[in-house]
Design a binder for these strands. Sequence first.
DNA 1: TACCCGTGGAC
DNA 2: TGTCCAAGGGT
Length: 352
Amino acid sequence: MTAFAPELLAWYRQNKRSLPWRDHPDPYAVWISEIMLQQTRVDTVIPYFERWMAKFPTVEVLARADEQAVLNLWEGLGYYSRARNLHRAAKLLVEEHDAQLPEDTKNLMKLPGIGRYTAAAISSMAFGHDAAALDGNIRRVYARIFNVEEALGTTQAEKIFWSLAEDYLPKGDAGDYNQALMDLGATICMPRNPLCESCPISQDCEAYQLDIQDMRPVPKVKKAVPHHVHTAAVIVEDGRVLLAQRPSKGLLGGMWEFPNGRVDGDPAEGLADVIDKGFKLNVEIMNLLVEVRHAYTHFKVTEYVFRCKLIRSSQKVNLRWVSLDELDDYPMGKIDRQIARKLSSPPENEES
DNA sequence: TACCCGTGGAC
DNA sequence: TGTCCAAGGGT
């Protein structure tokens, strides 16, 4: 049935990447790595994984940790709901499951942050169960092997991919098989310029036989990325700076930032709009900067503009004066951390 | 279902 | 500099 599974598994056992969470029997480590790896590259994850396991080595330690400490360790990885969900799930496990991860996909998926892919990955890799996993790599590999013409993301394509994953899963080798497909996708069957000459299963690959690898998978149509300008206030007084905590859900949930508001028109003209979100500002005295937010993803500071002073704030926003040498204790997104670092370190001569 | 959610590397 | 996109999940 599985024409290519033996070749794939043989290739994997010879060529598998050496990764910190591999060849460890600890389901907790597998869980942490899988969450970190969601939409995130291996090279980016490795240092975070090492720091995490040193600081939160077990489910119990994680459950007892402070959420701000968890977010602090996650800072820079992105998709911060993953960290909040890990923390919540750890508490749930301690309270209701004797701090043990479930072995089956159904119960794994009851935990926050674990969906169909992650449940299958944990069940197969950590517990050796026959669970079919499907991620971006595996979709691409199957799309090429079987010349799937449906566009990624469509309901029909999802049906096809999950059926392929289920049908071709070799019983007893699910963990290695899933990882083999992912390693193949990451090192051989890459999105662009795949190394088909080095592929152990190119003879089974329809797209390769047709020489249309570049056309598979068929990409999904993407929406244009929204673009907003925010004006943020950097208010320093007596060696302290004013920070605001973001709401616990949504973009950068629970993290800290410099008070800011969206500016619709000219950033300079629109400074008063910082008053949005409950901030009252006197535009005469304070340090302001303009920040460009590309969608919810890429952030960039464009210029420092004004000086003004905080007059009052609403009760709805959690504000705190923080001394400059304590800024590292407050989890922030990329852009606010850049600003914070400039505050706590003396300015260099014309940095590039 | 479509949209929201970060960041950095490759090209 | 712009574009793509990477071991997805939640809503």
